[in-house]
Design a protein around this nucleic acid. Sequence first.
DNA 1: TCAAAAGTGTTTCAAGTACACCCATGA
DNA 2: TCATGGGTGTACTTGAAACACTTTTGA
Lengths: 227, 227
Amino acid sequence: MNTNKIIEAVSVDCLIFGFVDSKLYVLLVKHGTGPTHGQWAIPGSWVRYNEDIDLAANRVLKSQTSINKIYLEQFKTFGKVERYPYGRVITIAYYALIDIEKVKIRPGKSEEAVEWFPVNNIPDLAFDHKKILDSGLAFLRNRILHEPIGFNLLPPSFTLLQLLTLYEAILQKKLDKSNFRKKFLKMDLLIETNKHQKKVSHRAAKYYRFDTEVYDKLKLSGFIFGF
Amino acid sequence: MNTNKIIEAVSVDCLIFGFVDSKLYVLLVKHGTGPTHGQWAIPGSWVRYNEDIDLAANRVLKSQTSINKIYLEQFKTFGKVERYPYGRVITIAYYALIDIEKVKIRPGKSEEAVEWFPVNNIPDLAFDHKKILDSGLAFLRNRILHEPIGFNLLPPSFTLLQLLTLYEAILQKKLDKSNFRKKFLKMDLLIETNKHQKKVSHRAAKYYRFDTEVYDKLKLSGFIFGF
DNA sequence: TCAAAAGTGTTTCAAGTACACCCATGA
DNA sequence: TCATGGGTGTACTTGAAACACTTTTGA
């Protein structure tokens, strides 16, 4: 069997989130061919006949960002009859969190452009993609309260203020600096490094790391993350 | 076009939960035809070419229970290549919460039997259905902490002890009666009725109702349910 | 009068909230 | 020396948790 054979009725779409300059961004592509030529959309692909859906989502991710092994989670499947006007297509939506500095984005072969957009300034999108994006944002907003996943958007080591602004950007509200520090540090999830910021015109902040292994151990001993 | 035409690669499966005698039950069907003849499974169906996936799930529900308009939510899509050995089938999983006393269950035409099983005593299931059930239970356990959906499993009016045992059954842990009362009553989500239990050999409990409209109003004014 | 569940009250401790304030550093 | 963010401390309030107790009812 041709391993590239696709399931015609099923696609995956992948919201790729990044964080920089205190703002949350999402990666969008501009279609270069077909009936939606020129329209912006969430990166996606058909699911192949011999391919797990999680792997299909991973493939999309890799084709846009060249990276693998990152935070990727399915959040909802969209299947209204009229969502895709050129046939019946059900799409399984995923979201990914990446360290925006680590990736070189690149357009796929049928794409005219690929670009980061701040989530509060999104162009018109093809199909029901605006709805998918809103749903994904709501999902992320909820997830970040109950799972320590925000770290995936930051470099391996980061300051507490970076983490704070990340939470503020996702939750869309101001948080108290002092209480945020106490809350996070008390959880023992963050590992101090001995590095500090350099050449900043204010007191240099300490860098911290989040270690998934530490979290897994804590979880085994009954710890439940909650912000 | 034949409106019964199906999308061959896509099905919906629907976990139907009920609650009675302090226990959580799930509805399972025994296949009466085909290669899985004789095996227990989660009720499901193919998605039709002209049918929204939510409607497909609703159709499954109605065919098993004769009821409509009940709590139904999609929770996850399962799409491993080898999950279904007779072809490539991706299934979109839903769960429903119903008042078990209100329904007469009935087998579909290709089913040998349909039966309620306590969730902690489940027979072997076809395909990856055990995994789907476990995933659905975990989803429900989480949802009930953040959304007031438990009421859908109870009759329109119920006592606080019924609600308590419902939470205990789903969360699988004992809760303090007094604290549970206080917490729930303080939320102003429950409407007192003037009815009491009758002919019980202990002090008669007051019946309460949960009114979705009340909850919607509260939500608009910023209230967030949390248990 | 006893069992069983309804329903109330109280005490303790942990955690969230809102601040005020000092510290370090480059421009 | 000033602005800027880093970092600490405290007082207040809320809410979770544990548990003792009283009330009502049919058997």
